[in-house]
């Protein structure tokens, strides 16, 4: 090759800054792409509020049927506030279509493009997911704010500044944790082409153990057979509750002090572990990949 192209190539390789620029460009493109589907989004946002309505009705019935004013430390108001807060966490940590999309791209071969181009697929997926979320928040902002406004009486007084910082931190970590969990799940398609049942099983565990269905501290009375260890203690060391329960409980003031710090550390540790696992699975998977789908 000639000297000229060599030098021009050198001139334009300005390292990580350029990596950041291309990542930014991916983010912009993903945003544009997401905005092309407005109706789909608006509908998805509205549907998200339906489950919570049924949850509120269910718990109202439970409280009406018993004479107790609190169940496992939750008053009726607390419960409604909890579900709304868990819904907010889920708006960060849930990744609709991520695992399924990855496995589809592996099955139909469209993942090839990312093997050929000098781009990092996981970084690209993250950019596209951030874009996805940003568009979602723009669309969902109004309904979210109005629901929270109408339900403001269910909430306890706002926590102090430090707790709010911890809350925001736990939310951001829950986004990243949710992302790497599901991305890893989708990459199982390198080994088993059909992963929808694996995804389904994961979703089931996720639903039960994340606090999406009920607050995790309700498991504190359930023994595990080990002395002094409740089911809630076990779940604390799993990644699931950090994608719904944990931030909600932080806001409600149920987790404070060292327990809060420990919780954030466990969340951060799981995030780092899942980043590693996700990279590893991608590395092994692409080594194994045989380019299905022609």
């Amino acid at each position: 090759m000639s000297a000229h192209t060599e030098s021009s190539r050198l001139r334009v390789s300005y390292g990580w800054l350029s990596g950041l620029k291309s990542w930014w460009r991916m983010l912009i493109i993903c945003l544009e792409e997401r905005l092309a589907y407005r109706t789909d989004f608006a509908l998805g946002t509205v549907m998200r509020f339906l489950p919570i309505v049924t949850q509120v009705f269910l718990w109202t019935a439970v409280f009406n049927a018993s004479d107790r004013t609190d169940i496992a430390g939750y008053s009726r108001d607390n419960i409604v506030a909890y579900y709304l807060l868990a819904m907010i966490t889920r708006a960060f940590s849930s990744m609709p279509g991520l695992a399924g999309g990855i496995s589809r791209s592996i099955r139909d071969g469209s993942v090839k493009k990312y093997l050929i181009q000098p781009v990092d697929y996981i970084g690209f997926l993250l950019a596209s997911r951030i874009a996805h979320k940003l568009v979602y928040y723009i669309v969902a902002m109004l309904p979210f704010v109005s629901v929270l406004f109408f339900c403001r009486s269910y909430f306890p007084p706002a926590p102090d500044g430090l707790t709010i910082v911890a809350y925001v931190l736990s939310l951001l970590l829950s986004f990243l944790l949710g992302f790497f969990l599901e991305a890893t799940l989708g990459m199982i398609a390198f080994w088993f082409l059909e992963v929808s049942s694996i995804i389904f099983a994961y979703m089931l565990f996720q639903y039960l153990l994340s606090g999406h269905m009920f607050p995790i501290d309700m498991l504190a009375d359930i023994p595990t057979g080990l002395a002094g260890v409740s089911l809630a203690d076990v779940v604390r060391f799993l990644p699931f509750e950090y994608t719904a329960y944990f931030p909600a409980a932080v806001w409600l003031g149920k987790i404070t002090g060292w327990e809060l710090v420990a919780g954030l550390l466990i969340e951060l540790t799981w995030l780092l572990v899942m980043i590693g696992v996700c990279r590893f699975v991608w590395w092994r998977g692409t080594k194994r990949y045989s380019g299905f789908g022609g």
Binding site: V12, Y14, S18, K21, R25, M26, I29, E32, Q117, P118
Partner: peptide, 15 residues
């Protein structure tokens, strides 16, 4: 998306 967008992306990823 329009092809022009993909081209811009290529400009970035291929530097």
């Amino acid at each position: 998306l329009p092809a022009a967008e993909s081209f811009r992306l290529h400009q970035e990823i291929y530097r």
